[in-house]
Amino acid sequence: MKSGLSLTGHERSFPAEEVIVTKTDLKGRITYANQCFLDISDLSEEQALGQPHSIIRHPDMPRCIFKLLWDYLESGREIFAYVINRAMNGDHYWVFAHVTPSFGADGKIIGYHSSRRVPKRSAIEQAIKPLYADLLKIETQATDRKIGMARAYDALQEKLKSLRMTYDQFIFSL
Rank of each mutant, 00 (worst) to 15 (best):
P59F: 00
H53L: 13
D42Y: 01
S114T: 11
L5N: 14
C36F: 03
D60M: 02
I124D: 01
Y72R: 15
L135F: 06
A142P: 14
F170I: 01
I138Y: 02
D60I: 00
L163R: 07
K108W: 04
G111P: 13
S54I: 00
H98G: 05
E125K: 10
Y132I: 03
K137V: 02
M165H: 12
A81W: 01
H58D: 09
I128A: 03
K129M: 02
A127P: 02
F96E: 02
E74R: 15
I65R: 02
G107K: 08
L136E: 11
K159G: 04
T8W: 12
I128E: 01
R151W: 11
A155V: 09
T31Y: 08
D168R: 10
Q35F: 03
I109Q: 00
T140A: 09
K2Q: 07
M1Q: 07
I65Y: 00
I55R: 03
A123E: 01
H53Y: 11
D42R: 06
K137C: 10
K67D: 13
P62A: 09
R145A: 14
R86Q: 15
K27W: 05
N89E: 08
S162A: 15
E78M: 10
I65D: 05
K129C: 04
A48E: 08
L174I: 07
I128K: 00
I138K: 02
M165D: 12
A123Y: 02
P59D: 04
E139R: 06
A127N: 12
V19Q: 10
Q35A: 14
P119K: 02
I128N: 02
F37L: 00
S6K: 11
S114F: 04
L49R: 09
G148M: 07
F172M: 14
T8S: 15
D168M: 05
R151A: 14
H10G: 01
T31N: 11
A105N: 10
F170V: 03
I110H: 10
I40C: 04
D134M: 13
S41T: 12
S122F: 08
V83K: 05
G107F: 09
I147K: 14
S115I: 03
S102F: 08
T100F: 00
A97V: 03
Y167V: 13
R77M: 00
S54L: 00
Y32C: 01
W70N: 03
W70I: 00
V99D: 05
Y93G: 01
V83A: 07
V21K: 12
Q47G: 15
K120E: 10
L136H: 15
A48Q: 06
I40W: 00
L73F: 03
Q126H: 09
R86Y: 02
P52L: 04
D154Y: 04
T166I: 10
I128H: 03
K108C: 13
A16Q: 13
G9S: 08
H53F: 12
F80N: 13
F103L: 15
A81T: 14
V95I: 12
W94F: 05
Y93T: 00
F66T: 01
I110D: 12
L68P: 14
P15V: 04
R164V: 06
I65A: 06
I40V: 14
D106I: 03
R86K: 15
Y132P: 03
G9W: 09
S75V: 08
F14N: 04
L38G: 03
F37D: 02
L38H: 01
F80H: 14
L5K: 14
M61R: 04
Y72G: 04
V21P: 06
Y132W: 01
A150H: 11
K120M: 08
K2F: 00
G111V: 09
L163A: 08
